[in-house]
């Protein structure tokens, strides 16, 4: 029996994020992560396949979903990299969807398209096809890890979050805890699985399989602080080139999960890609929860006491 580290500290209070240090590693390598630049993703899915090959992940269903070219639907126990495809027709002028509600986007809902009316030639807007490769965020404050009761999920010396399959007991707690819907339980063996950030490769000086397979370097692997710097530069470049929609997602150590170890450059609102706009590690509120649990428990005791005492007085008809 060991006590694991990674207490549910208040992430916002700790901008100098060193999750492996916090977890008790004293002399550890720099925190490694991903910068996934979706603006250069060509949707080839090499990352998905490379991940499956390297990790020997089972097939994840053979359904034609009709969601553009995405037939794997999302991350899950048997899909650790997932490429999203979004077809959009955007107005050429008008309100800037990037800066206001995502509602302004004319998202193409293919499921509805067939029913739509013919707008005729000269339909407004240009078509764009967004592609984005999603992965576990390796959160600085990882809910999955926090809530795992067995210690199966742990923080590596690289600051990543990894499941130890020999310890996982399939309690499933990590699954709804993850604010991004990443980790999932596999139906057949009941255990939880997700991206390991190729723990078995990076220790040997190899790039993660997905990053190595990515032809356009949409997936960049490296020390997190360097990636963040590079990403900031990339956003500046894109903005200067008129790509106002470019924004980073998960790069801010001040966000609800203390910054993601795997962060993204997106060209639209996160929810367009199926990502939560402002995820918060659920355990941030856990101290408050425990306080309330304590009060409620005390209340229960009190209520029982009162009930028993008042009960005795009020209904003294019983006797021994």
């Amino acid at each position: 029996m060991t006590a694991t580290a990674d207490p549910a500290a208040d992430p916002a209070a700790d901008p100098a994020v060193d999750p492996s240090g916090e977890s008790g590693y004293s002399d550890h390598p720099p925190r490694m992560g991903f910068f996934t630049d979706t603006s250069v993703c060509i949707g080839c899915k090499a990352c998905e396949v490379a991940c499956k090959e390297w990790n020997a992940i089972p097939e994840d269903g053979l359904d034609l979903t009709g969601m553009s070219y995405d037939n794997t639907v999302g991350l899950g126990a048997s899909t650790w990299r997932h490429v999203a495809f979004v077809e959009q027709r955007r107005p050429l002028a008008g309100p800037d969807p990037g800066a206001s509600s995502a509602a302004a986007d004319l998202d193409v809902d293919v499921l509805e398209l067939a029913a739509q009316a013919d707008e005729g030639p000269g339909r407004p807007g240009e078509l764009r096809w967004l592609m984005s490769s999603d992965v576990c965020k390796h959160c600085t404050h990882a809910a999955c890890l926090d809530v795992c009761p067995t210690g199966s999920l742990f923080r590596t010396e690289f600051g990543t979050v990894v499941v130890q399959e020999d310890i996982c007991n399939g309690c499933g707690y990590c699954v709804p805890a993850c604010p991004y819907g990443v980790i999932d339980r596999r139906a057949d063996d009941g255990r939880a699985w997700k991206c390991t950030l190729c723990y078995d490769r990076i220790g040997d000086g190899l790039e993660p399989a997905c990053a190595q397979a990515c032809p356009t370097d949409s997936i960049q692997f490296g020390p997190l602080d360097e990636l963040r710097e590079r990403a900031a530069g990339r956003v500046r470049t894109l903005h200067a080139a008129g790509v106002d929609d470019a924004r980073l997602y998960g790069a801010d150590p001040g966000d609800g999960v203390g910054g993601a170890g795997a962060f993204f450059l997106l060209l639209d609102e996160p929810e367009v890609y199926g990502l939560p706009p402002d995820p918060v590690v659920t355990t941030r509120d856990l101290p408050a929860m425990w306080r309330r649990v304590a009060v409620a428990a005390a209340g229960l005791l009190g209520a029982a006491a009162v009930a028993c005492m008042t009960g005795r007085n009020g209904t003294g008809t019983g006797g021994r």
């Binding site: 509600s101 367009v272 939560p276």
Partner: peptide, 26 residues
Amino acid sequence: RGGERPMVPKAEFTSYYGRPVIKRPV
């Protein structure tokens, strides 16, 4: 740029084909 913006954002939202963002408890 900086043109009109809807003042009151509608209570609409975009999603990825209506798919859940998080995983339902298993």
